[in-house]
Simulated scan of single mutants.
Amino acid sequence: MSSDDIRLGDIIVDDDSGDIVLIGFPYDEGVRRNNGRVGAQHGPNAFRQLLKRTGTVVNAEYDDLDIRKYLKISDGGNINSDLTLEEAHQQLEERIQQLILKGKIPFVVGGGNDQSYPNASALLNNSKSIYVINIDAHLDVRPLKENKSHSGSPFRLLLEDQRFHQNPSNRFIEFASQGSQCSIEHVNYIRSKSPLTQIFWYQSIRDDPLTYFRSIIKSAEEQKSDIFVSFDVDSIISSSCPGVSAPATVGLTAQQACDIAFYAGQSLQVKLMDLSEYNPLIEEYRTGKLVTLIFYHFILGRAKTLRDAIH
Rank of each mutant, 00 (worst) to 15 (best):
26 P>I: 13
84 T>L: 06
37 R>F: 11
130 I>W: 03
234 D>P: 08
275 L>C: 09
39 G>I: 05
67 I>V: 08
72 K>V: 13
18 G>M: 10
81 S>E: 15
261 A>Y: 05
226 D>H: 14
197 T>K: 06
31 V>A: 02
50 L>M: 13
94 E>Y: 08
70 Y>N: 02
178 Q>Y: 03
289 K>G: 00
148 K>W: 04
230 S>F: 01
159 L>F: 08
114 D>M: 00
89 H>S: 00
69 K>H: 11
157 L>K: 14
88 A>N: 00
130 I>H: 01
101 L>T: 12
217 I>E: 00
160 E>R: 05
171 R>G: 04
172 F>M: 07
245 S>R: 11
191 R>H: 15
69 K>A: 12
285 Y>A: 12
286 R>E: 14
234 D>N: 08
108 V>N: 09
139 L>S: 13
95 R>S: 02
68 R>W: 05
194 S>Q: 15
243 G>C: 00
180 S>Y: 13
248 A>V: 06
204 S>F: 10
128 K>Q: 14
233 V>I: 15
153 S>D: 06
296 Y>E: 10
185 E>I: 09
152 G>F: 05
203 Q>P: 01
230 S>T: 10
44 P>Q: 10
274 D>Q: 10
298 F>G: 04
104 K>F: 10
102 K>E: 14
18 G>L: 09
228 F>L: 08
19 D>Y: 11
61 E>F: 12
